[in-house]
């Protein structure tokens, strides 16, 4: 027995990126129903407090996702050591953010609930994570036997607004880069319908996708499912979605489609046949539709 030193590895440190959906239209619609924004905030702040409570090395960064912009609203590493001002700091920044988001918006009112800029906040989260990886001492180095801490980031999306198909490409790119840097994306759906984007995000990156049934117990969902650090997840059974919507959006009209055409060069997706690819410029051959007696024969590429 020579290990007189205290425990060296901290398996359960979690660095958490929380993406808050601050789409005003969604929240004013939700006001009437189950969860008001203020209730939502108390659940979230309590969750952040509890994450920071369970390990002094835990770090939380909050990014607000508006409809016109997104921004960092809280970073526990930068906020100083005064724990009881956490909520104040976060709320103050949030108000500033909402004002900014409103100013940036155009005057014309959006028809229905617009989607919020999920792609933007995902990218910001990933940028932040990359910056920490590259600069800090907390770079994950599983191979090194130096006593560096193994620290892994995770992203939690608290999302309510519907998917914006026009963000498809950007979101998918973000998802793949998250997958590459081994950052799981957890999603907790607050709205009424499922999000195909987040389903895919969680599926691809190995995160948890959950749509709580009872929104007034949000904290319970957060603490039971999403608070588990990546180390513990090896030992826990976490909720699994029944199915994942793998449908893609076409690049030309940003529609969500079941079947479509795919550029054989760059894999761009189109809902109609084009003469050439708008992404990479490749010229396509003639589709085999010149059959004598057939009118509308399409050779479809079924992609599932």
């Amino acid at each position: 027995m020579t290990s007189v030193t205290p425990k060296l590895s901290t398996d359960d440190v979690s660095l958490l990126m929380v993406l808050l959906d601050t789409n005003p239209f969604f929240w004013s619609a939700a006001n009437a129903t189950s969860l008001s924004f203020s209730k939502f905030l108390s659940h979230v702040v309590a969750f952040l407090n509890s994450v920071l409570l369970i390990n002094q090395l835990n770090q939380v960064v909050v990014i607000a996702t508006g409809i016109n912009t997104c921004d960092y609203v809280y970073d526990s590493a930068a906020a100083g050591a005064v724990p009881n001002q956490r909520a104040e700091i976060l709320l103050q920044k949030l108000v500033e953010f909402v004002v900014k988001d409103e100013q940036l918006g155009k005057e014309d009112s959006v028809n229905g609930i617009g989607s919020s800029l999920l792609s933007g906040s995902l990218s910001m989260a990933l940028c932040y994570i990359q910056r920490v990886f590259r600069s800090g001492p907390l770079h994950p180095q599983p191979r090194s036997n130096l006593m560096k801490l193994l620290v892994w980031w995770q992203i939690l999306c608290l999302h309510g607004s519907p998917d914006g198909p026009e963000q498809y490409v950007a979101i998918m790119n973000a998802i793949f880069s998250a997958q590459r840097s081994m950052v799981p994306i957890d999603s907790c759906l607050l709205g009424a319908q499922h999000s195909a984007f987040l389903q895919q995000a969680s599926y691809i990156t190995g995160g948890v996708y959950l749509k709580p049934q009872q929104l007034d117990g949000l904290f319970q969902y957060l603490s039971t499912v999403f608070a588990s650090d990546l180390y513990s997840r090896n030992f826990l059974q976490l909720p699994k979605p029944v199915g994942v919507d793998f449908r893609a959006s076409c690049f030309c009209h940003k529609n969500t489609i079941d079947m479509g055409y795919i550029c054989s060069v760059c894999l761009s997706i189109f809902c109609k046949h084009h003469k050439n690819c708008s992404t990479c410029g490749s010229v396509f051959g003639q589709a085999q539709s010149n059959a004598p007696s057939t009118s509308n024969q399409k050779r479809e590429t079924p992609e599932t």
Binding site: D11, D12, S50, I54, N55, Q220, S223, T224, A227, S228, D229, Y231, S232, F235, L236
Partner: peptide
């Protein structure tokens, strides 16, 4: 780690 999670979920 697991114990922490149990405490949180029973809070």
């Amino acid at each position: 780690p697991l114990a922490k999670k149990y405490v949180l979920q029973m809070l």
